[in-house]
Write a protein that binds this DNA or RNA. Structure first.
Length: 189
DNA sequence: CTGTTGATCTGCT
DNA sequence: GCAGATCAACAGT
């Protein structure tokens, strides 16, 4: 499976968010492979009031201003890490895509052990849950997603435009009118 | 230095 | 459906 090239991330953040649906997120821990198909994303870009990087660069959000194709991880609500991919067209100052949900493919037993639950439905269907299942934390901040390593993204299935649902984003209080949350229709999930 | 807030999850009602 | 957990980053004093 081919790893997505850096040019994939050098486009408008909203476009990349849609294109990430159906791609495969791969996490390697020692020799254990964990992977899953990306089925839900949200786009955040510069000037967007709901985005961490809406105005000034700070210690936490500087990754969103850096090189595209890298991982941006942040900690919130005292309990949860969330995984983003940095992506923007080269005329924009910052932008990122929140990976909200994946469908587990490989290493499901390992994920269940990480999450200490039994219910498959709630294994990786939220940003914080997904990060916990894949053991993602600040150690993954800034990892290059375009190189084979402990965390990267590869080509997946082809997604038709009519299989993508756009809805308002979740858990924010500003700019809720932008339909920048994208869900992949999954007939068998 | 202090107070507030947040791209959430879980458990209980 | 709703409140509580829980803490780092941020902005203001």
């Amino acid at each position: 499976m081919d790893i997505l090239p850096r040019t994939f991330y050098e486009r408008d953040t909203v476009l990349v968010a849609q294109d990430l649906l159906g791609k495969i997120l791969v996490r390697k821990i020692n020799n254990q492979i964990l992977s899953g198909m990306i089925i839900e994303t949200e786009a955040y870009k510069f000037g967007d009031p709901a985005c961490h990087a809406c105005k000034n660069i700070t210690e936490r959000n500087k990754g969103l201003f850096g090189e595209v194709g890298r991982a941006y991880v942040y900690f919130t609500y005292g309990n949860h890490y969330c995984l983003n991919a940095v992506a923007r067209d080269l005329n924009t100052r910052s932008g990122g895509i929140l990976i909200r949900a994946i469908k587990p493919i490989e290493g499901i037993e390992f994920m269940i052990a990480n999450r200490r639950i039994q219910n498959l439905k709630t294994l990786t269907n939220g940003p914080g849950k997904l990060a916990q299942a894949l053991q993602i934390n600040n150690a993954q901040y800034g990892i290059d997603l375009t190189k084979e390593g402990e965390l990267y993204i590869t080509e997946g299935i082809k997604v038709k435009p009519e299989d993508i649902i756009a809805t308002p984003r979740i858990g924010i209080t500003k700019a809720t009118e932008n339909l920048w949350r994208f869900i992949l229709k999954m007939p068998d999930y």
